[in-house]
Design a protein around this nucleic acid. Structure first.
Length: 257
DNA sequence: AACAGCAACAACCGCCGCCGG
DNA sequence: ACCGGCGGCGGTTGTTGCTGT
């Protein structure tokens, strides 16, 4: 398969330019890029609608803005996404969903369009291969208090494989830095004094969050062979109140949005 | 070598929220 | 309060080029 980035610097990815209402559409030419960059570096970009005319471009303002923001901006980082960047995208997507611009704001030099493309072409497929589809369309939350209780239960049971899996899964999804900020109660006044990346995350538990525990149980073949009940969810029923489809065909996996 | 399938990604489209008149 | 213009955003499309057969 073709490696990422091989198209950079070419005019691939979109139909050849054509004219509509006197305005060009499609791929940008080098000459157009030069005009746009030259104009913006000299005058800035206050009014996108007026910009193309002033810059001598037969493009609509939206097209100019998109070209600048997604491709010509000098601070754009080119090249493959690092493993760390991809992990960050995956983790942020669990919290933010398809808020590409928000995710992009956490990744300096990367554009929302680029992140969206990477997600749709690579990361989503990678996750589909290891996670149930519900996790890709919903945000994941976990309550650390309940995690502790589950871990105590599993430890008592000597079930290290499940414990390890839970730890790995939580860390993979959220990262240690985020997990450390998980709390059940937040103090808004105190939070206002903290930078956004330091603020506690209010992780209110709801029954819909248990799908991933059940998923792990199924994946790890931890279902009790006698009664076919998932081990954790059957032993700690108060965590699963409201789950009335535990034994359904999908194993009780539920989605939430 | 030719072809089909797929991945990558630039760019378009349409919607929404904000803001000024 | 209403309306229109504008910018921003997410979803989607369309093309290229690589890879496998």
């Amino acid at each position: 398969m073709r490696k990422r980035g091989t198209m950079i610097g070419t005019s691939k990815g979109r139909a050849p330019a054509y004219e509509k209402n006197g305005l060009r559409k499609g791929s940008w030419t080098e000459a157009e890029d030069v005009k746009l960059v030259t104009y913006i570096l000299r005058h800035g970009y206050g009014n996108w609608r007026a910009l193309p005319k002033q810059a001598g471009l037969l493009r609509c303002g939206k097209s100019c803005r998109l070209r600048w923001v997604n491709y010509l901006r000098p601070d754009i980082k080119r090249g493959n996404f690092s493993k760390e960047e991809e992990d960050t995208i995956i983790r942020l997507h669990q919290f933010l969903g398809n808020k590409w611009s928000d995710i992009a704001s956490k990744l300096p030099g990367r554009t929302d369009n680029e992140i969206k493309n990477v997600w749709n072409t690579r990361l989503k497929k990678r996750l589909i291969s290891i996670l149930p589809p519900q996790s890709l369309t919903s945000s994941i939350t976990c309550n650390p208090t309940d995690n502790i209780e589950i871990n105590q239960y599993l430890g008592m049971k000597g079930d290290n494989s499940m414990q390890d899996a839970l730890d790995q899964f939580s860390t993979a999804i959220m990262g240690d830095d985020v997990l450390d900020r998980c709390v059940t109660e937040t103090n808004e006044e105190e939070n206002n004094n903290l930078a956004p990346f330091q603020q506690p995350i209010d992780m209110s538990w709801d029954s819909n969050n248990v799908w991933w525990i059940q998923y792990l149980e199924r994946e790890l073949d931890l279902v009790d062979s006698n009664n076919q009940q998932p081990t954790v969810s059957s032993q700690l029923p108060h965590l699963f109140q409201g789950e009335d489809d535990l034994t359904s065909d999908n194993g009780g996996i539920t989605s939430h949005t």
